[in-house]
Simulated scan of single mutants.
Amino acid sequence: MWWARLKALIIKELLAVLRDPRGRMVLIGPPIVQLFVFSYAATLEVKNVDIVVFNQDAGRWGAELINRIDGAPTFRSITRVDNPEALREAIDLQQAIAAVSIGPTFSRDLATGARADLQIILDGRRSNSAQIVAGYLNQIVAGLGAEPASGTRAGPVAIEVVPRNWFNPNLIFQWFMVPNLVAAIALLIGLVVTALSIARERELGTFDQLMVSPLRTHEILIGKLIPPVLIGTFHLTVYVLAAALVFGVPLRGSLFLLYGSAVFYLLAVVGVGLFISAMSATQQQAILGAFLFMVPAMLLSGFATPIENMPGWLQPITLANPLRYFLAVVRGVFLKAIPAEEVLNNTWPLAVIALITLSAASWLFRRRLE
């Protein structure tokens, strides 16, 4: 009998979301758009870079350095200037992110093994991109400095370092971004759908009708919990298929382990959403509460910056963030084929967070009924 009541509530919750045109739009449109926009636009790679060069060297190696920069796929254009003022102006007006000043003795110094006169000027207003561009330029300069001048250059023999990247050998950015989005967008959908659940009932005036129904309090909570989990699992499946079939991200691990961990992740997210919904009197408050949680959760998850780089006092706070653990699972399953033990190590904290958040949501829900 209890199952029939619960089933009716679950169907009612699903219909309430799917019959509303705005609800359907929120569930279908934005997540798909976000998946593709973030996968292509939210990139830490630096391409199509404009460079300014002030070459005072009349020798071979100054021209060779310019040709190598020009031939690198990262750089879009090279503007040659003939005085330091023009170089400074190009940086000031943001016409270029970096400038290379080649000294008049550059070729001679390279030929004799002396320290070459070369300066790289960066636009500090775009610090992250500028540092990446500096790394590209340093790599080109190091390659040039390691080559002998027709076999006659004096100086030490250069040691060539050949890097090898495991799990993403070609450093394809989508392989890093798309698994992150699988977890992040599932957080967004699960949180928003759940946060609106009880608040929508209050705003539409159907909450009191729900209270006088034969459903018990825990059955109402379970009925509010299961539909977002089902919707989140559906979205997760769509993202996994898109990652493998559209973006070509290798799926090296076990789907069984991924979905097993995803259940506890979604329960933890839904617990937070129910807590926010129980506190909110209107849907607007619920939306604001969801985003108030989601933005710090994204920043403290290791999505864009490693947790190890955060201040020491901030790192313990990330232990309460469910996105932190599921990101590790998604990345590992896609790129690394992590073993079941490592998945379990990142799943049991999700179970603890789910237990705490669902218990808190249940307590607050009961208290609001008194």
Rank of each mutant, 00 (worst) to 15 (best):
F247M: 03
V269R: 03
V246I: 15
E201L: 05
V269T: 14
V161W: 11
P250Q: 07
G155A: 04
A183V: 05
N170R: 14
G223K: 00
W175Q: 11
V246H: 03
N170G: 13
L225Q: 00
L187V: 02
S150P: 00
T217M: 13
L266P: 04
S150D: 13
F207S: 05
L225G: 04
I189S: 01
G190S: 14
R202M: 09
V229Q: 05
T152D: 03
L215Q: 09
L171C: 02
P227H: 02
V192R: 03
I185L: 15
A199L: 07
L187P: 03
S197E: 01
L196Q: 06
A186N: 06
V229L: 14
T194E: 06
A244F: 11
L188W: 06
I185W: 07
P179Y: 07
V161I: 15
A149M: 12
S213W: 03
F256C: 09
N165G: 00
E201Y: 04
A268H: 09
P214G: 08
G260I: 09
V240W: 01
Q174E: 10
M177F: 05
V269G: 02
A262P: 07
V229S: 04
G190W: 01
V212L: 10
V246C: 05
A268L: 11
V212R: 08
F207C: 01
F167I: 08
T233G: 08
P214Y: 10
V263P: 02
Y259A: 01
L191D: 03
L196H: 06
A158E: 06
L245T: 13
V212G: 06
A268M: 12
N180Q: 12
L245R: 12
Y259F: 15
S150A: 13
V162G: 01
L245F: 15
V157K: 14
H218W: 15
G248Q: 09
L196G: 05
L266H: 04
G248F: 07
E147H: 04
M211C: 08
L267P: 13
I159R: 14
F256V: 15
G223D: 02
L188P: 00
E201M: 06
F234N: 00
F167S: 06
I226M: 12
I189G: 01
A184Y: 04
R200V: 00
L191C: 05
T206I: 10
A154L: 12
Q209L: 14
A183D: 05
G253D: 11
G260P: 09
F234S: 13
V212W: 07
A268N: 10
V157D: 12
L204P: 00
